[in-house]
Design a protein around this nucleic acid. Structure first.
Lengths: 208, 208, 208, 208
DNA sequence: TATGAATGAGGGTTCATTCAT
DNA sequence: AATGAATGAACCCTCATTCAT
């Protein structure tokens, strides 16, 4: 072969895909290795055990988004509502693109099984959460926003997107995409979601 | 014996609790039976198999809420925004009270495993979905609401509540409840969520 | 209901049918009771346990044939070869009619599992075996038959019929019966078998 | 270790032995693995499942005999009756040597359980069946044999041997072997059976 | 006499993991 | 670095049987 495909990466990709479709416990190490075309023992060899594989998967995701959002927070050229909207856009794009992993993480966070996962997952979550919270709080302090419920506003932002990600069947019905197309890859639908969220937040946040 | 404890119900209760905490696959029939203090074979005796138990669990939930919401839709004494708010209140209460099952269902709906579950779960979901949709659409037609994105508005309603239900750890931080109290049973917090959602929707829906 | 169907008999009938099709271990007490339309506990109530049911099934078969064959042995109006042929005819008819039970017994006799069954089954078998042996031995002593291998001759008689009973698929091919007909109920085929056996035995037994 | 015992083969040997004694359903995978001194999971590892093990067992038997018999059919140096006798000898030897598996197969063929086994088993059976049929038919056409019932003649050949194999208890009585000896390994008894069959067939087939 | 509920043992199978090579 | 063989625990489920009524 010309390019040596990184086995470690193959396993992570396969795991991400299978975890998304079948859940953590529903995905056997055997299936993951078969999908990744590597030997069964490689998971334990590279990641120690199945849980190590999962944790590595989380870390892989954690990196990029926060830096981008952090810049947003500090950008003096944007108004508060523009920052909110930019955050919403970036966050939506990110979650749509990493839909599988997002769902996997959400499922794990809603369980008390494998609680040590929560730490790593919580950090990712909390990072974005705190950035958004600062944007909102500063906007309120500056008088640009009303005295809103900051934490629940963030829950709305995240929850709306998650809800869209969860109900693929339902989305398929009202997203007006072809049957063989992934609605989450459809630009029209993604724009619709982004515009909706921005309008919703603006209605709620901005003083009339 | 004085009171005959209904074994069938015990099993369902135990399953609801364990599924919520550890997921469907993470909960073994053994564990469920042990928690319910019944013999291992009773699950198969009463429900055929583990999947039958799950389906029965779904059906048990399905019953009450929809009738109540349906009445809402047809109540002529309420304005459109009052209907939306009443729906939000009822839905929030319901999901808070049945938090465990709600999370279990959400997790299953976000997976492609055990797809035959989706039918039963989808019906529950779709029922509430359609009622809310009708309220919104009629409100729009009547000119009481703006030309909003109906489906995504519903996603916001549901998604916000789910997001709150998922992140127990985070909720605990900003809900200001005592450590040993279930924040979802705290009346202050629940009212906070309900008020937030109503205000959010009112901001978005009602013309200025 | 008008005629009260004998439950005991219903169970025996159902068991005979299921044992024949699926074997002793392949037939669950549940299936038997369901086919017999009786309560699950009736098997243990009437027969003690599953093995008792089987033994009772054997006894039910044991009765009729031997008496008929015994009369044959003592009938002075028949020649030796006529006795052999009458025996073959009667035996063939009997085994064809009770095909299921015959197969069940054969299977059990060929296993070392549940050896206590062998006694009851062996008696049935041995009874017929001994009658035929006497016929043959007396025929040899009287000079009507050649000095043949008596025991193996009986094995041929029984084995040929069993072989025909076992291979239903093969029989169906060369028995020239309609697809929906039980070849063992087809008179032509049964006559063919009977004539074949008689001719075979005559060729072997009778001096030229 | 010096000699590496083939685990796969050990399992097959153990299964052959247990299936013969206790039947397919009466032999648990646990028992088989214990007898073979291998881990419980090895059956699934090597054969997929218990049925796969059985099928593999059949295939292992299928190989040798037919080639030998086929050569017989085409050997120009033998007369028709010599071919029949050679076939009978070879077939008897083979079935005596593989008594356990023969009984197992016969039992399975006589049941409607696990019908997919029948294909593989039927092929083995049919192969030998067809060779013998051709020998007989050509002998008849050549005028060496009488106009006999070909199919039932084969049933007699097979059935007689099977009958001897089934009734170990009875065989023990008239085979005149020591109590601790397997009568099927006794050369005298085997010769007796072979001679009997050859004489029986010659009587029936050959014109006087 | 007859039943539905209940039991404990054991069934086949899959799992994550380890080991010798 | 990488593998195929091997392991023991646990999985869900079915079994024949028993018990209170």
């Amino acid at each position: 072969m010309r390019v040596k495909p990184d086995k470690k990466e193959s396993i992570l990709d396969a795991a991400e895909q299978l975890f998304a479709m079948k859940g953590y416990e529903g995905s056997s190490v055997r299936d993951i290795c078969q999908l990744a075309s590597v030997n069964l023992a490689m998971v334990n060899y590279y990641f120690g055990n199945k849980e190590g594989l999962f944790e590595r998967l989380i870390e892989r995701k954690a990196s990029f988004l926060r830096e981008k959002l952090q810049k947003l927070l500090d950008d003096p050229s944007l108004s508060y509502i523009e920052k909110v909207e930019a955050f919403a856009d970036g966050y939506t794009d990110r979650l749509f693109e990493r839909r599988g992993l997002t769902l996997t993480i959400m499922r794990e966070m809603s369980m008390q099984q494998r609680c040590h996962f929560h730490e790593a997952m919580g950090e990712i979550f909390l990072g974005n959460f705190n950035i958004m919270r600062q944007i909102l709080q500063r906007g309120i302090e500056a008088g640009a926003f009303r005295q809103v419920d900051v934490e629940l506003t963030i829950a709305t932002l995240m929850g709306t997107i998650h809800q869209v990600l969860i109900n693929e069947n339902m989305v398929r019905k009202f997203a007006a995409v072809q049957d063989d197309t992934d609605p989450y890859d459809d630009q029209n639908f993604r724009d619709r979601v982004k515009n909706y969220i921005k309008q919703l937040l603006r209605s709620y946040l901005v003083k009339v």
